[in-house]
């Protein structure tokens, strides 16, 4: 029964129920909202407070040892070479792994979307497979792939006459090795999002472009790319946010080494917080990361606005 045609008495009965339905609405959201309040908002506020304290292993035992120290944690971070190292590594990881993930993902999505392509379902499923795998498990696998003597990587490179590289043991190669693995693990996700974006572009636009005499490249440049801009922004933000949280790969493969060449911001936070129990200091690290993520998202939105006015 369409809304507009309800007889008056029924409409009145429905209206009579409205306030009650309001209460019912609260009842339906109450479990979720209370869980989110207790396990998200309270810890979020707690994290901010924590970052202004010297909470450490003594305070964990007895809160009497807890002191408010203002922004000391943040000023200490600014002078901590380890933090700058971790931030530098994380940035290096983001700016190299990011484009290396997104660009092939776009290329493969275009190939999968092409009219000439057969077995689309098979290709998509296979290319997406690394995304669903357990990060820890594939990190273990890649550690062996990178083995300098018996690893398949060394065997392949030796065919081209390349000397064995101690991928994970060499400070110059450890981060690139982790980048390569992250690209392998994640490109499928971006690819599927790009595919969704490509599907959403109306076919008539290409037809109109063809009638106007646009060739394949011109169609791509003037139809596909501009209309894909929102999708690209979404993929870029997702990738940026995800990659800034780099943790399990270095934790399992290198423990941040060799000589801190793969120490990431989150790994530093984990070490400070859950290994040395310097939770106040670790909370400051976490909040700085949060700030960087928000700033990164805003920058990307700016870039996109400029690109497609």
């Amino acid at each position: 029964m369409p809304d507009g045609t309800a007889p008056d008495d029924i409409r009145q009965r429905l209206r009579g129920m409205a306030p009650e339905r309001g209460r019912v609405g609260y009842g339906f959201v109450a479990p979720a909202l209370s869980a989110i309040l207790v396990f998200f908002f309270i810890p979020l506020a707690g994290a901010l407070l924590l970052s202004f304290t010297d909470f450490d292993i003594y305070a964990l035992g007895d809160l009497a040892y807890l002191r408010f120290i203002g922004i000391d944690n943040y000023t200490r971070l600014a002078r901590d070479p380890l933090f700058w190292k971790a931030l530098g590594n994380t940035m290096m990881f983001v700016v190299s792994a990011g484009p290396l993930t997104v660009l092939p993902a776009l290329g493969l999505a275009l190939l999968l979307h092409a009219r000439l392509t057969r077995f689309k379902g098979f290709f998509r499923t296979a290319l997406f497979l690394p995304v669903v795998t357990t990060l820890v498990a594939v990190a273990v696998v890649w550690r062996y792939l990178y083995h300098p003597q018996y690893g398949p990587m060394a065997a392949v490179l030796s065919v081209f006459g390349v000397e064995p590289i101690d991928w994970l043991g060499d400070p110059h190669w450890a981060l690139p090795a982790i980048i390569l693995m992250a690209v392998w693990k994640n490109f499928g996700y971006s690819m599927v999002v790009f595919l969704a974006g490509l599907h959403a572009i109306p076919g008539q636009l290409y037809e109109a472009a063809r009638i106007d005499g646009a060739n394949a490249w011109q169609q791509f440049r003037h139809v596909t790319l501009p209309l894909l801009a929102p999708t690209t922004l979404f993929v870029a933000v997702l990738t940026l946010v995800g990659y800034l949280q780099l943790f399990a790969e270095p934790y399992v493969m290198t423990q941040g080494g060799p000589s801190q060449s793969t120490l990431s911001v989150v790994l530093l936070m984990y070490e400070e917080g859950f290994r040395w129990w310097n939770m106040g200091y670790a909370a400051a690290v976490a909040f700085l990361l949060f700030g960087i993520i928000v700033a990164g998202g805003l920058v990307l939105r700016r870039v996109q606005r400029r690109w497609v006015p």
Binding site: I42, P43, G46, Q245, F247, F274, I293
Partner: peptide, 20 residues
Amino acid sequence: GLVATLVVPGQVTMLPLFML
């Protein structure tokens, strides 16, 4: 308000959540 929280990385709440 809820949707806005999606930008907060999980690690931020991890330390107080552990204490809680």
